[in-house]
Design a protein around this nucleic acid. Structure first.
Lengths: 343, 343
DNA sequence: GAAATTCGGGAAAACGGTTTCCGCCGACCA
DNA sequence: TGGTCGGCGGAAACCGTTTTCCCGAATTTC
């Protein structure tokens, strides 16, 4: 790692090793045909001199930067962060660097970042967002994969959580426990995730011969709304109405709030009413009393898969591009005390 | 932005504009001496052809990449994320790209990333972590700024939150409200933040002529511990002991849990006991009943300052380096219902 | 009107690698 | 012993910019 003066270049290594620069390059990259002895000698010298190949210069001649852009459309938060980390991790393994670009839901910023990424000649771009609502596709001359937030173009490469499967996991779990009548507490009605989760819940319930009680409740993705919704559920289950035995919530935050409120109202969870969450958000399931049964969307896996598909597209080249389309990542059920007593 | 075939290079622009490549470069960079007419003409052609200068090639000849590395030592989370975003934002404004590198508290990964950043010839590095405990300094040939997690080397450039000031804000606020006797609920005892906040609290209380009641309570940074701690505080304030009128918590998570528990025990917040948090974490202060009075550490500002200091160090060069040392970023008091009724 | 300045723009050398092509040398074979 | 072949390594072109001269022309100055 040079300490002072200038960085050690390939010619420095060449001079010390008594070979030509080209030979050094071949030795370090396992290319060309070199005698093992030479290869070793050069490598030793490079090592000893602390030579680190200039990635920029290499990129220039290889016409490949080994950099991909990670573009976050809206706010980076609880959902997009794991996706980004999963992607970064997978890219690092592939010896690829990650350029961070956050647009903060400002299209001017997004354009600016995009231009910057293009100028850097990134090999590809991964686009993320916090929601699962589709977004307009990017028009850029490099491969793009959309993670978490899919592209509106059906032939683009997208990787998203399989919310339908998640709801089926929940319903199957509840059915096994003997529940037949459930209520649903959702978040913002205008969100794609809300619609999908409700529809999936309906389908899964129908398939299991179970019943959705009361109207679907939509409000905010917040605890105050969750508590309020719990009251509404209890009103629905008031004397005269048939009681629900489980409340399926669209997020851990809601579930935690519903649980809190039920507890305050003297309802025992899970004995009287079971509660399920969604997201497997540690802060929420850990604080909940009892802890939450929930679904983990495997966000890191989503990021990893996005990276893998991008890499495939990059190495394949624009000619024989790998298949596009939406890839659904299967979620995982995590069972805790809010559905099964004894936790 | 080219659609097909090859990217448009500077020679393409030159040919179409009927000038030499060097002239194009000068026109686009406002360098050299060119007739305004020529400059405009070249620019128009570049624009029309959708020319985007190759940042890598430019870096090669300018010996400056305009890239900085953003190295996250441990987990990227609630604390380091805003810092990173603040830094990224400031860097973007300065036309600098951000290379993401997350070590996940694995020193092998950190070394790997470091080597990669050096290979990319980054102009500088910003190091972050989730805690305020000092870390070993990096040994690299480029300027480094430590954000949130300071360097153990006192002459290195570090930017951290001013927790002492934060506690003073809290205490002043409580004093104004007439409180005289307070309890403290902390998180993990082995954390730097815990020690600093307790010491600052003590100092501020002493200066205000107020009293810390009971032993400082340390446990985990979790709601279960917060609830447990609330019980301990109530025991301390049991008949016979002089009552505390406020509980100062080391985090919003703890404060929220303390508030929940007090509420369950029939204690009215803030009438009987006021509660304060720390972090201004929306998820927590919003869910709390009443909402939390807390301190915002201005994490984005910390990131921004780190970026600004790094940029200064980069442009100054290694010769006349700007002053190192720890910079404290002043926090901000946010008053809500947990200390003042009527919310 | 000739000499001395500007001024505008071109030629070419970096920047630090990779890669293609080619020549040399030793070995093998007849 | 001479010719051929294969393996090893060097020379040089190239990747796409920037930047330093440097030259020719247009202007000024005496």
């Amino acid at each position: 790692m040079k300490q002072d003066g200038r960085t050690v270049r390939i010619v420095d290594v060449a001079r010390v090793a008594g070979v030509s620069p080209g030979t050094v390059s071949k030795a370090l990259n396992d290319s060309g045909s070199l005698r093992p002895a030479t290869r070793e000698r050069v490598r030793a010298v490079a090592e000893q001199l602390g030579f680190v190949s200039d990635a920029g210069a290499r990129a220039l001649s290889m016409r490949r930067t080994f950099i991909v852009g990670l573009l976050s459309t809206d706010d980076v938060g609880r959902f997009s962060l794991p996706v980004m980390l999963g992607a970064e991790n997978a890219l690092t393994v592939g010896e690829i660097s990650t350029l961070l670009a956050t647009a903060r839901r400002d299209s001017v910023r997004e354009q600016h970042h995009l231009r910057s990424l293009i100028a850097r000649r990134v090999d590809g771009i991964i686009v993320t967002g916090k929601a699962t609502d589709a977004r307009q596709p990017l028009r850029v001359p490099v491969p793009v994969v959309y993670a978490l937030t899919p592209s509106a173009g059906p032939d683009d490469m997208s990787v998203v959580p399989d919310d339908a499967a998640g709801m089926r996991l929940i319903v199957d779990h509840l059915r096994t426990l003997g529940h037949r009548r459930v209520a649903h507490v959702g978040g913002r009605a205008d969100r794609h995730a809300s619609r999908v989760r409700l529809e999936s819940l309906r389908a899964a319930l129908a398939a299991a011969g179970m019943e959705l009680v009361g109207p679907p409740l939509f409000g905010e993705w917040s605890e105050p709304w969750g508590r309020q919704a719990a009251d509404l559920v209890l009103r629905e289950t008031a004397p005269g109405a048939l009681p629900v035995t489980a409340v399926v919530c669209a997020s851990d935050q809601l579930a935690r709030a519903v649980g809190d409120r039920l507890r305050e109202r003297g309802v025992r969870v899970p004995h009287d009413i079971a509660v399920t969450g969604y997201d497997n958000w540690d802060v929420m399931w850990e604080a909940s009393r009892p802890q939450l049964t929930t679904v983990d969307m495997e966000l890191e896996t989503i990021g990893r898969r996005a990276a893998e598909r991008l890499l495939a597209a990059i190495t394949a080249g624009p000619d024989d591009a790998p298949p596009g389309g939406v890839e659904l990542v299967p979620p995982r059920l995590v069972v805790r005390g809010s559905t099964i007593a004894g936790d």
